[in-house]
Amino acid sequence: SKDAAQYVYDEAQKGVTQVTVNGVTFKFDNWQKLLKYAQKLLN
C-alpha cells in the first residue's frame, strides 16, 4: 500500500537499514538501498 511505502520511505530517511511492515521485516546492507526500495514502492 502507499501508506506502507511512505512509512518505509520515512524510515529510510532516518538512516535505518531495516524496517518492519505488516509483520514483515526487510533488511538492507545500507539505508540507501532501503531508500531505493521505498522509492520503487512509491512509484
Rank of each mutant, 00 (worst) to 15 (best):
V16P: 12
L35P: 00
N22Y: 15
Y37C: 12
D10K: 03
K14D: 11
L42Q: 01
K36D: 12
L42E: 01
F26S: 02
W31P: 00
Y37L: 13
N43R: 10
Q6T: 03
N43H: 04
A12E: 07
K2D: 14
S1P: 14
Q6W: 13
V8H: 04
L34A: 01
V8W: 14
G23L: 15
D10Q: 05
A4P: 14
A38M: 12
K27H: 11
W31C: 09
A5S: 10
D29H: 11
K2P: 08
V19Y: 02
V21W: 03
T20F: 08
L34V: 01
A5W: 14
T20V: 14
Y37H: 04
D10W: 14
K36E: 15
V16L: 08
G23M: 12
K33I: 08
G15P: 05
A4E: 08
A38W: 08
V21K: 10
V19H: 04
Y7S: 14
D3C: 15
Y7W: 12
Q39Y: 11
K36G: 07
V24C: 15
Y9R: 03
E11M: 10
A12S: 04
A4T: 05
K2Y: 03
K40M: 13
Y9L: 13
N43Q: 09
L34R: 00
Q39G: 03
V8M: 09
N30R: 10
L42T: 01
K33R: 05
V16E: 05
N22G: 07
K27G: 13
Q32T: 05
Y37S: 01
G23C: 14
K36S: 06
T25D: 07
E11L: 10
A38H: 01
V24R: 02
V16N: 07
T20I: 10
W31M: 05
S1R: 02
D29S: 12
N22E: 05
S1K: 09
K27Y: 14
L35I: 05
K36C: 13
L35W: 03
K2L: 11
K40E: 09
A5G: 07
G15Y: 15
S1V: 12
Q39I: 05
A12I: 13
Q32V: 05
E11S: 03
V19Q: 04
N30G: 10
A12Q: 08
D3A: 02
T20A: 06
F28H: 02
K14I: 13
L42C: 14
D3L: 06
A38R: 00
L34F: 02
G23D: 06
K33A: 12
D29T: 07
K33W: 06
V24G: 03
Q39F: 11
T20D: 04
L35E: 01
K40H: 07
V21I: 14
G15I: 15
G15K: 08
A38E: 00
N30E: 07
Y7E: 15
K2C: 15
S1A: 05
K27I: 15
D3G: 02
K2G: 14
T25I: 10
D29P: 12
L41N: 01
A4I: 08
A5I: 06
N22T: 09
L41P: 00
A12V: 09
N43E: 13
L42D: 00
K40G: 04
K36Y: 08
F28W: 06
A5T: 04
A5R: 01
L34H: 00
K14V: 13
A12D: 07
Y9M: 07
N22I: 15
A12R: 03
Q32D: 08
T17M: 07
A4Y: 09
F28T: 02
W31I: 05
K14Q: 07
W31K: 00
K14C: 15
T20G: 05
E11K: 10
K14Y: 05
Q18S: 07
T17P: 07
Y7L: 12
Y9E: 10
A4Q: 10
Q6Y: 03
Q18A: 07
A5Y: 08
K2I: 13
W31E: 01
N30T: 12
T17Q: 06
L42W: 07
Q39C: 15
V21H: 08
Q6M: 03
L41A: 01
V24H: 03
K36M: 05
T25S: 07
W31G: 00
T20P: 03
K2N: 12
G15M: 12
A4G: 03
D10I: 15
Q32G: 06
G23V: 15
K36F: 05
T20S: 11
D29L: 14
G23R: 06
F26G: 01
D29A: 10
V19S: 02
A4C: 14
N30P: 04
A38Y: 06
D3V: 01
D10E: 12
